[in-house]
Nucleic acid binder design. Structure first.
Length: 537
DNA sequence: TGCCAAATAT
DNA sequence: GATATTTGGC
């Protein structure tokens, strides 16, 4: 089925139009709350009388998606009756009474949330999440009729996005399993769905869905900056009402697109999975937590000791092409000297990503860029396997692409090893618009976004592996000694001399590409020539 | 806070 | 065993 923008139009405004049953014994309070809800474009039916509210719901349950009910232990109409008799309707309870027993009673009776009065806009605006939660987690038999269309529409929308391949630059939420989870719930008992969604309203609009990484930093006393900004490039899921659209619920059926996942399991059976995850390995966590994928806590604040433990370790960032692309863009934007983790992190604007994550990736990135490989690997020319491996080693790349460039300078950048044999279908994730293979047919791209030459051409370029930054720790740019127009040219002689000289003066550094270490025989011969015949092992 | 290397996970 | 990523020390 082909979906059009019009098909999704109805949902772009979600949760506007959500039908809310509001019950509050206080006439002033009910009016105030109603006004706030209506300001959010919710469709509110308000009641001050519990019996009236209940009968309204029982008569036309399809008229309501969610209820906001005030409970009171002092009044005869405490709201509990409604709660008990409208179990299928996700019900948010509110009260001036914050005592634990009242809250527990509400939850025990099936309330999805307990909100202290007064009800601010902040508290109210996210109640829609309970509707989604209910729609996806209630067994079919207990799914309120009013929510079935919600569920079906959401499912269709999510499916549509997957088919359209709209899954770039967004941290994913797996709702793929949610439907299945609802089946599980159904198997357990009809009442299992009455367990409340965890602390939904603590997730404020615009706040990120994935925060365990930050929490990790926070617990370490780090001042890790939390990226609260959300621009068009943000890679986190924005759960705000305004943005619950195709951009934000992407990849929902793309387990392989996991960006960040937590992989803890606990001996005590407590599984923490507040983070979004698409990794099949983590699905069990979703099951354990009732499959609530839409309601993590604010800023990853742990809800309990289990979650603290869950956050302490093993949050793993999967550096997908998109994420890496952002990383590379940030690095290039900052420049070699300024590319430090904190700044990269700022530029990337990826929620959930920590400075540690970036630092780690930067470390790898730099190592790759400097072509750091064990010397033995280089020297092992007698190993045919190694030889063939080295033969695939990319030699150079184009300089970082800048979109404002209209031509491509012939600066030759260092390149690092290709992980696999290149094929025509190799995935390339350079910056958008990078003219990868256009100017030079046959040029490939490696996993780090740099196009590379195939081995035959490569063998005739004895350039240093890092043309910038090898001289006495200072940035020295050799690139202008490089051929300017064609790969057929050889580098300037003085450049080669410079590279060789440097390699000899700093034997601890990895050899520049193109420079081969001397063979053991030649070394022995040279030593012998210098009167050294015994080599201590 | 950044960098590096060891440890750990996949 | 290779590679990717986290963790911990400096």
């Amino acid at each position: 089925m082909v979906w059009t923008a019009n098909d999704l139009q109805g949902w772009k405004d979600f949760p506007k139009g959500l039908k809310v049953l509001l019950l509050d014994g206080d006439i002033n309070s009910v009016a105030e709350t109603k006004a706030k809800l209506e300001a959010m474009d919710y469709n509110v039916s308000s009641f001050s009388n519990e019996s009236a509210a209940l009968s309204a719901f029982l008569n036309r349950p399809e008229d309501f998606h969610i209820a906001v009910v005030e409970v009171s232990t002092s009044s005869s109409q405490g709201g509990f009756k409604f709660l008990e008799n409208a179990k299928d309707l996700p019900t948010v309870t509110t009260s001036n009474n914050q005592c634990l027993s009242t809250m527990m009673k509400c939850i025990a009776l099936g309330a999805v949330e307990f909100l202290n009065k007064p009800l601010s806009e902040d508290k109210l605006k996210n109640i829609w999440q309970h509707v989604v939660h209910k729609a996806f987690n209630a067994g079919e038999s207990v799914l309120p009729g009013s929510l079935k269309p919600v569920k079906e529409s959401l499912e269709s929308m999510l499916q549509c996005q997957t088919e359209n391949g709209q899954h770039e630059n967004k941290i994913s939420v797996e709702l793929d399993n949610v439907s299945r989870l609802s089946d599980n719930d159904h198997n357990h008992s009809a009442g299992s769905d009455k367990y409340p969604a965890p602390s939904t309203p603590q997730l404020k609009q615009g706040e990120r869905l994935l925060n365990d990484g930050d929490y990790q930093e926070h617990t370490n006393g780090s001042t890790e900056k939390e990226s609260g900004e959300h621009d068009g490039e943000s890679m986190s899921v924005d759960t705000s009402c305004e943005n619950l659209n195709t951009e934000n619920i992407t990849q929902l059926r793309k387990p392989e697109k996991t960006l960040i996942k937590r992989e803890d399991g606990f001996a005590d059976g407590c599984k923490g999975e507040s983070a979004v995850s698409l990794n099949p390995r983590n699905r069990k966590f979703l099951s354990k937590t009732g499959g609530n994928t839409t309601t993590p806590n604010k800023a990853g604040v742990p809800r309990d000791s289990c979650e603290i433990k869950a956050n302490r370790k093993k949050m793993k960032v999967d550096w997908t092409p998109e994420l890496h692309k952002k990383f590379v863009q940030a690095v290039e934007q900052l420049g070699v000297d300024q590319a430090i983790p904190s700044r990269i992190l700022e530029l990337m604007k990826v929620d959930g990503l920590t400075r540690h994550n970036v630092a780690s990736h930067l470390q790898k990135y730099r190592m790759q860029k400097r072509q750091i490989v064990p010397r033995g690997e280089w020297a092992n020319h007698r190993d045919p396997i190694q030889r063939s491996y080295d033969a695939q080693r990319p030699i150079m790349s184009y300089p970082p692409f800048h979109s404002n460039q209209t031509h491509y300078p012939a600066h030759v950048y260092p390149m690092w090893r290709q992980p696999v044999i290149q094929t025509a279908g190799v995935q390339v994730w350079g910056p958008p618009g990078y003219p990868l293979c256009q100017p030079f047919p046959g040029v490939h791209a490696d996993a780090w976004g740099c196009p590379v030459l195939p081995p035959p051409q490569a063998s005739c370029f004895p350039y240093t592996q890092d043309m910038v930054g090898l001289q006495n720790g200072k940035a020295v740019d050799y690139r202008f000694g490089m051929p300017q127009n064609s790969f057929e040219h050889h580098p300037a002689e003085e450049v080669v001399d410079k590279i060789v000289k440097e390699a000899m003066s700093k034997p601890w550094l990895p050899l520049p590409l193109g420079l081969k270490p001397p063979s053991a025989d030649s070394v022995l011969a040279e030593l012998s020539k210098q009167g050294i015949s015994n080599i201590p092992l």
